[in-house]
Amino acid sequence: MILFVLRRILMSVPTLIIVAVIIFCLVRALPGDAALMMLGGNIDDESTLEMMRHQLGLDQPLPVQFMAWLREIFSGNLGISVRTGQPVGELILDRFSVTATVVLLAMASALAVSIPAGLFAAHRHNTRADYAIVVATILKLSMPSFWVGLMLLVLFGAILGWLPTVGYVSVSQDFGLGVTYLILPVTSLALSEIAVMTRMMRAGSLEVMNRDYVTHARAKGLPERQVLWRHVFPNAFAPTLTMVGIALAGLLAGAAVTETVFTLPGLGKLLVDSIYGRDYPVLQGALLFIAAVYVVTNLLIDIAYSFFDPKVRLS
């Protein structure tokens, strides 16, 4: 197990280097001039511009720039934001903590709702309860998530005035206030995931429900609750777990739409801002960080698999 994790982490190093090359090239391919941007956009003084470029290292050939960046990364230094002057690493972690709080809370609540709901729907297959759950998920799936977010804002923020609509306060600063800022974005994200995951869980359970070992569990006289949780759930969860992995990695990499709707200072927003500002160090750092998030999330999901399927040997 430990060996497996170590090997996987080692294996991810070449992946990240390749990603770094791609990121570097893509960022340089962006139109626009970072030095010009920094100096406010309309400067005709060529020498000031030259000086700025030299200061940023932009006058060096690309390979040299890349190697310099890579060397910095390996020494743990992602550089300094061109726009704000903050260290990039700090900036990313700061923004990521916002995204991670929202996303992890949303995922946890989505799992807590959709697993029982999916199991229940499958258990009551073709009854009214099942139909109700299926119809509800289809309804949610057919609404765009930014629209649902906006409607939540309108209802609970503007009309009822129960919850704040703009801004963000970290729970570590003020817990009570922080929670009120989290409720709407978490609910909005969770609703989308619940819809997808409930359907996956229901489909997975329906397939398992007809297996001999489930009938056999009933034939042992086990109560229905035990049949569902001990025999159906572990076998039905694998497809949902795959989904969770993909969704989790995608959202941690920046729930850009949700962050924009709820004006959260998250990773997605950082990314968008640094693209507009040609903030190369932040952009490169954030993209590389996102790649690392994908690698780590996938590793965690692979480990989680081995708990649900003993046939999956970690090797």
Partner: peptide, 20 residues
Amino acid sequence: RGRSIGLIFQEPLSSLNPTM
């Protein structure tokens, strides 16, 4: 079920829960 009446199935490959 189980206590007074036992059941054994045809497919030994599918009648035991693979995750337990």
